[in-house]
Amino acid sequence: MKRNPLGSGNWPFRFGALALSLAIAGAISRGADDSVQKVEQGKKLFQERCGYCHRAGGTGTIMLTRRLGKDRSLLEERTDLTVAYVKKITRVGINGMPPHNRIELPDPELDLIAFYLTRPASLRAADTSKEGAP
């Protein structure tokens, strides 16, 4: 029986990016802080669940370009997002973007996505968000 591939995250393009981020993560992680791991998990979830629309060329990116300009169109590059905002918008939707319910996207997964999108500058070194939408 074959599992849904998205459960194990085996999109081919992701391996290189993951290896690179882990290398950098290793260099900056300190003590018991699990933020590096959370960023990685959040990034994987973002790419799987939000990437259809919110990576380069995606419909959400195009809509955001129109509304806020190119500089603020890629969510993974934004530094002005807050955890509360990401979570609220995901749940209630905005403009053309429909809401996401807690079955397709449970709270713990949304927490990780919000953590990733609001990660501090120190965790942004391995930014690979310019890859195209899947």
Partner: peptide, 17 residues
């Protein structure tokens, strides 16, 4: 090849499409 870009059209009128 799956995409969601067809959804763009709801922005045609402006406002919340």
């Amino acid at each position: 090849v799956p995409a969601t870009n067809a959804l763009q059209i709801i922005n045609w009128r402006g406002g919340r499409g």
